[in-house]
Computed example of a mutant assay.
Amino acid sequence: MKKTLLALAAIAAMTGSASAADLGARPYVKAPMPAPVANWTGFYIFGGGGGGLSNADQHINDTATGIPLTIDQRQGGSGWFGTVGAGYDWQFSGTWVAGVFGDAQFGSIRATIQDPIFDITGTQKLETSWAAGVRLGWLAAPNVLTYVNGGYSGAHFGRTNFMDLAGVDAGVHLNSYDRHGWFIGGGVENSLNFFGINSPGWFMKTEYRSAFYNAKTQSELDNVTNLPFVGGHDIRANSWNQTISTSLVYRFNWTGPVVAKY
């Protein structure tokens, strides 16, 4: 009986060894790679354009006495502009981005200036402006940044020539001037790869901004002498400008998503 059991065990052992020899080597399975992580830290430049609206609360004073002659009236206008700028961002805590930037705008955003007492009307043009500020954003996706921004702004308003009701030059103008104020806004910036375009480093930014400039009091001046118009008025007005722009952005450090190595 013992001899029989030993024979069966030997046969089973040889059968198992033969079966193992017939099996191929176990295939190598590579560990799964983590999802790519975008790196938003670095310098960038941008350029683009858009459109804007201008609003101003105005009232008329007597030039000699400074006594208000009218109550506030709101005038408005619209136009277009181009913009260029640069900045630097820091990515932190995974999905948060903070940065500093500066930009300049140039174009023609026009607003109406009116003296209802003399029945004369002019057009004031926002010719150039600049801004310096900070922004804080959150990554809605590795290549999509949503953000808010704010900061300091300055603007140059061109000369205003007045016309009478018949459209004839009234011989009165306001000189050009500079004003300063602050702005607040927000937008979305995304890699062009978001649209299926293979363009490392290139992004598109769409932004809304509101800029508020300090009030300015100006005397109506004679077109010939550039002196206060005889029996003239002063016009006091503030300025509130809203803009929407779309820009192309190039990020110098962006050579594609960073992938962890093993």
Rank of each mutant, 00 (worst) to 15 (best):
T4F: 07
L8V: 15
A10W: 01
M14R: 01
A20H: 13
A21G: 13
A21M: 14
A21R: 15
V29T: 13
A31F: 07
P32Y: 08
A38W: 09
A38I: 01
G49L: 08
G49E: 09
G52K: 00
G52S: 02
N55I: 07
N55F: 15
A56L: 10
D62L: 11
T63D: 08
T63Y: 07
A64T: 07
A64P: 00
T65C: 04
I71Q: 15
I71K: 14
W80I: 05
G85W: 09
G85C: 07
G85A: 05
G87C: 06
G87W: 11
Y88S: 04
D89Q: 15
D89N: 15
D89V: 04
W90E: 03
F92V: 09
F92N: 07
S93N: 14
S93R: 12
T95D: 13
A98V: 04
D103T: 06
A104F: 15
A104E: 05
S108A: 15
S108T: 11
S108W: 12
T112A: 11
T112Y: 00
T112I: 11
D115E: 01
I120M: 11
I120S: 05
G122V: 02
T123N: 14
L126I: 07
A132T: 10
W138Q: 11
W138R: 15
P142R: 03
P142S: 04
N143Y: 12
V144R: 04
L145P: 03
V148S: 03
Y152S: 01
A155K: 03
F157Y: 12
R159A: 12
N161T: 09
N161W: 01
M163K: 10
A170S: 05
G171A: 02
V172H: 01
I184H: 02
G186P: 01
G187D: 00
I197H: 08
W202A: 12
W202G: 03
F203E: 06
K205C: 03
T206L: 07
R209S: 12
D222W: 02
N223F: 06
N226A: 11
L227D: 10
P228I: 03
F229D: 10
G231C: 10
D234Y: 09
R236T: 15
R236F: 01
W240Y: 10
S245N: 09
Y250G: 07
Y250M: 09
F252D: 02
N253K: 12
W254A: 15
W254L: 05
V258C: 02
A260F: 08
